[in-house]
Design a protein around this nucleic acid. Structure first.
Lengths: 343, 343
DNA sequence: GAAAATACCGAAATGCTTTTCGGTACGTTA
DNA sequence: TAACGTACCGAAAAGCATTTCGGTATTTTC
C-alpha cells in the first residue's frame, strides 16, 4: 500500500503567485507572460515561463471562469444512457470543439423527473454555459421552460414547445431514402415492417416510405406492420408477411433489430437475400448490421454530427441571439449486402 | 425566432450580495442563513430565504469550490465510448453519490495518446477531485504515472503499474461460474469457443473454465477455440466443433456475440438448445441475450457497480490514504433459456 | 538637452462565496 | 448597579486569475 500525497498542504497545486515569486515579477506580469499578452519584455517572459514549467503550474480554471462569467462547460442531460442513441450524440457533443476545449458534464436522469430537476439545479450551480437535453426517442418531450438562465438545445427528442431549439433526425427523409434505394435496386413489391406505432419514429418513417413509393407510382404491399422494436417481432412479422404476400421482393424495416429478425425468418423459409428479397434496416447499428448474414444495408442518422451541432448551437446561442424551432437533420444510406449482392 | 436573454447584463445570475441587499443584512449573514448555520436569528433567516427565493438565487459553485479546494467533480477518461463496456461503468460512476452530488466530466480520447494528454490537462485545470480511467478491454494499460496531483482509479482495464489502484471484473471467476452452471445442468462434454487470444479476457476466462472442469474431474472437449469476438466466428467455430466432436452437450462462449453465432449454427444443424446442447454467453449484453432464440444465459460483470465503486474509491483516496493494486470484482450468472428449458 | 513618446511593470479591483473574529445590544447574575 | 454571558450580526480575509490604469525607466524626437 503506497502512501501517495494528494492535494495535501505539502504538495498543493502551484498558483500564479508562486510563479511570480520564483520569477521575481508581479502576479500581473506573470499572468500576461503566460497568456501571451504583448506588454511583457521577452526576457521577462522567458523567466516566467521557466518558473511556471519548473513548478508545473496550470491556471485554475475555476478562478478564470469566475472572472470571465463563462466556464466552457455544457451539461448533457439524458433520460436514458442505456439507449444506444444517446452515446453517439454524446460523442459528438464532447468533441465539438476539439479535445479539452469544452467539457461535458454528463447527467443521467434515468427517466425520473425529480432526478432531472436535481441535475438541472446542479448544472446551474456549476454555471454551465448551456444544456443539451437528449431524449431516447424522437417523440417530443416536455420543455424545460424558458426561465433557465442558460440556453437549452434539445437533441434527438425535440421539445414540445416550438419556442425552443430542437435538433432531430429527419425520419421521414430516412424512410424515403430507404424505399428509394430498394426501388433503385429494381424492387417494386415492397412491404414495411416497423416498431411501436406509439413512436413518432415509426410513423414518420412510414410517411417517408409512402412518399418514396408514391413518387415511383407504387403502393405498399399489404399494410405497414407495427408492433415492437425487437428481433422477435421481425421474425414473426416476416413469417406472416410471406404467408400472405409471397410475391414481395423488398422489405423496409423500421430498425436494424427488426431487420435481423426478418433475415432470420427469410433464411428459415429458404428465401435468399438479396437476390430473392432485399432487406434494409434502420439506425445503422454497426454491431448488428455487420454481423448479420448477409450484412445489413441501413439508414444512418448521423447522430454524432447531431451532437456536435447541438454543442455548437449552445455557444452560438450565447453569442448571438437564440434560434428556435425544430431542425430536421439529414440522414444517410449505408449500403451492405442485404440489398446488393457482393461481387 | 424568439429573442431570449441569456446571461446578458440585464438578467445576470443573482448573487449572494443581491440577496443580502434585499434582505437588508450583510453578505456573511445571508451566507449563514442559507447554509443553515445556527448563528442567525429565526426571523432574519426567514427574510434571507424569502429574498433568495424571490430572485431565485443559486450559490455559485465555482466560488465555493475555489474556496473549499474541492469541486465535487471527477473526470472520466475513456479511450473508446463506442465500446459497450464503458457505458455501464459511466452510469455507475455518475450515480455513485446520488443525483447532482458529484458530477462527471466525460472525456473520450478516441484511442489517441495526444488527445488523452489534452484531456488530462483540461481536467486538472478544472480542478477535478480525481480521475477514473476506463479502458475498453481488461488488458493492462499504461499508467498515467504518479505525478498527477489527484487520485486516479483505473476501471475495467487495470494499470500496468501495481502501485496504481485498479478495479477490473474477475474474468477467471466468470469462466468458472459459467462452466459450473453447465455442469450443474448435467452437462459433461463441454467445449469452449472464445475470442481473440490477444485479449486477457479470453485467456482469463479460459483459466476459469479449466478450473471449473478440473474441480468436477472433467476435461475440455477439444482445444479452446480462439479467434474473433464476432458472430461470424461463433458460427464458423460451432460448425467445425460439431463436425469434429458431435458428442458435446455444452458450450461456454467467450462473449454473447459469439454465442449468438453458435446458436445460429446449432439451429442450422438441427441441434436443439438447450435440450441437446446448452450454450452460455458472456457479458450479458441485454439486447443480444434477450433477443436470441432461445434467450441466452450469460455472465454479467456488474459493470455499473464497478463504476460506482471507482467513483467512491476516488473520494476515499482523497480523504484517507490511497490504496493500490488490482481488485477483481465478482461477476454474476444470469440464467435464461439457452441452458435451462423454459417450463 | 528638454520634451514627448514608448515600453514595461505593479498595485488594486473584480468575480462570488465562506469563515473567522471582533463588536453591539440585550439579558443575567452577584 | 456593576460585571459578565449570550445571541446575533458585519467587516474583512481567503481562495486564484485577469484586467485596468497609473507609474517608472528608457528611448525617441526636435
Amino acid at each position: 500500500m503506497a502512501r501517495v500525497e494528494h492535494g495535501s498542504a505539502a504538495s498543493r497545486q502551484a498558483t500564479l503567485s508562486d510563479v511570480a515569486r520564483i520569477a521575481g515579477v508581479s502576479i500581473a506580469t506573470a499572468s500576461k507572460a503566460i497568456n501571451g499578452r504583448d506588454e511583457v519584455a521577452p526576457a521577462t517572459r522567458r523567466r516566467v515561463l521557466e518558473a511556471a514549467e519548473q513548478i508545473s503550474f496550470t491556471p485554475n480554471q475555476l478562478a478564470r471562469s469566475l472572472l470571465a462569467g463563462r466556464t466552457g462547460t455544457v451539461g448533457l442531460l439524458t433520460s436514458d444512457l442505456e439507449g444506444r442513441f444517446v452515446i453517439p450524440i454524446l460523442m459528438g457533443a464532447e468533441d465539438a470543439f476539439g479535445a479539452g476545449q469544452v467539457n461535458v458534464f454528463l447527467c443521467d436522469a434515468r427517466g425520473d423527473a425529480i432526478r432531472e430537476q436535481h441535475h438541472i439545479k446542479a448544472l446551474l450551480n456549476r454555471r454551465v454555459d448551456g444544456i443539451i437535453v437528449v431524449g431516447r426517442q424522437t417523440d417530443p418531450r416536455p420543455s424545460l421552460g424558458h426561465s433557465l438562465p442558460v440556453p437549452v438545445v434539445y437533441a434527438y427528442a425535440p421539445s414540445d414547445d416550438p419556442a425552443d431549439l430542437s435538433l432531430t433526425p429527419d425520419n421521414r427523409a430516412g424512410g424515403r431514402l430507404a424505399v428509394e434505394h430498394l426501388i433503385s435496386c429494381g424492387r417494386s413489391r415492397i412491404a414495411h415492417i416497423t416498431g411501436d406505432p406509439a413512436y413518432a419514429a415509426a410513423r414518420d418513417r412510414l410517411l417517408g416510405v409512402r412518399d418514396g413509393l408514391q413518387a415511383a407510382g407504387l403502393d405498399l404491399v399489404g399494410d405497414a406492420m407495427f408492433s415492437a422494436w425487437s428481433e422477435h417481432w421481425g421474425r414473426d412479422a416476416a413469417a406472416m408477411l410471406l404467408a400472405q404476400h409471397p410475391e414481395i421482393d423488398g422489405i423496409v424495416c423500421g430498425s436494424d433489430q427488426i431487420a435481423r429478425g426478418v433475415l432470420d425468418t427469410l433464411r428459415d423459409l429458404g428465401r435468399t437475400v438479396p437476390d430473392d428479397i432485399a432487406v434494409i434496416g434502420y439506425d445503422n447499428w454497426e454491431v448488428l448490421a455487420t454481423n448479420a448474414r448477409p450484412e445489413l444495408t441501413s439508414i444512418d442518422a448521423n447522430l454524432q454530427e447531431l451532437g456536435r451541432l447541438a454543442a455548437k448551437r449552445v455557444f452560438t446561442a450565447l453569442d448571438d441571439e437564440a434560434r428556435s424551432g425544430t431542425e430536421y437533420l439529414p440522414v444517410r444510406l449505408v449500403i451492405r449486402g442485404s440489398t446488393i449482392a457482393r461481387r
